[in-house]
Design a protein around this nucleic acid. Structure first.
Lengths: 210, 210
DNA sequence: TAGATTGTTAATCGATTAACAATC
DNA sequence: TAGATTGTTAATCGATTAACAATC
């Protein structure tokens, strides 16, 4: 599970680096280059490629960047726009809706939902009341939601989303939600990350024996 | 590194669960309870406690919650407010500054910085131009920054923060920054997490052999 | 050809878990 | 005491890395 996740994350990173290298005019790349770029051992790069069955490297000239990008696209899914909805349009939800950088990276926020919408749209993206969520999600075949509701509403909203047929949630609430068979959850706990940072830099972390 | 990170994350989670259990009136807790709560094996809970040298469980009655919280506090650092600054006051930066939930969890946003501030304060939190960053950070002994600048400014701002003596960065830009000896970086790449979710639910992830 | 890089097997490393004696 | 739970050692598991034959 965790491993698979790490593995996937690396594949996505390879793809991004490759697109950048391509835009710089490069045509071929070595496992060492990719390893350097994402901070891992080149052997692991080759192992990753081998694991995804694209044994297409040339034992002299490395990998063809275009072919590699194609392979990664076919494995990771298209590089076209992927629709998500934002649930909870408070400060954070609104910021994500207005955040233009997502679009550039292939993510399209198709609508926002709020139990009590203060505006009808933001940057041209419609904001609907929660009541129409189920309908909207079904009609537009939305599979992924970004959860930005207050902590108190997290668990209840998770269930709503599950009922509506959502399959993946990026969870920004401080309530840690657990993945199930049909609903995959990625928790982003900002406070926990900050607390973690404070601990790491406190020097106390080295006291914990390895 | 990764391991240590996971270990720390678990310690923080224990602490939070324990505080909640305490607020419910509980006084003692078993390793099984904590394991259930954060979704891990109870042996790992005991191992974690053992690793941090608080062998204080009672072989019949489990652990005393108060003692456990005290121990965790002394290891993780105080539970008092911890000051951070937000760098980059665009949509996301502003949202974090206005996000009141941080305060409840012991995190105090002490100021915001922007290369071109549009307002002097938000929710009573002052917004300063980048020029005064170094001075402010030194004077207020700020050690952790939350980075919300545009992708193009990420790397440059990282260097600025390092020069100013910042020791930890929570990085919300899509540019993956690397930790150094003196500057620890926690990357939160929203687009990557979403892309990961889409892959996980696509069913293709199971094609990748384990 | 000689040199370089891949793909893959075997070795290592570290984290998690099982098992169980200690003991409350 | 008998039963239950801890603390810790040994076993397992999986991910990463080293080594190296294959080959361009």
């Amino acid at each position: 599970m965790k491993a698979n996740n790490d593995h996937t994350t690396r594949l996505i990173k390879y793809k991004r680096i490759l697109i950048q290298l391509k835009s710089l005019g490069l045509e071929r790349v070595f496992s060492t280059n990719l390893g350097d770029a994402i901070g891992i051992n080149p052997t692991l790069v080759r192992k990753d490629f081998s694991r995804m069955n694209l044994t297409q490297g040339n034992r002299k000239g490395g990998y063809n960047i275009n072919e590699l990008i194609d392979s990664l696209n076919s494995i990771l899914g298209t590089s076209e726009l992927q629709d998500v909805v934002v649930i909870g349009c408070g400060n954070l939800g609104k910021a994500l809706i207005k955040h233009e950088a997502f679009y550039k990276e292939g993510i399209n926020i198709s609508a926002g939902f709020d139990s009590n919408p203060r505006e009808a749209e933001l940057n041209g993206i419609p904001i609907y009341p929660m009541e129409v969520l189920m309908n909207y999600v079904t009609q537009h075949e939305i599979r992924v939601a970004v959860l930005c509701v207050p902590a108190g509403a997290a668990s209840h909203t998770r269930d709503l989303l599950a009922d509506a047929g959502i399959q993946g949630i990026l969870n920004f609430t401080p309530v840690e939600l657990k993945s199930s068979e049909t609903l995959r959850i990625q928790n982003v706990n900002i406070c926990l990350e900050i607390e973690n940072l404070f601990f790491q830099i406190s020097g106390k972390s080295s006291r914990v024996p390895v």
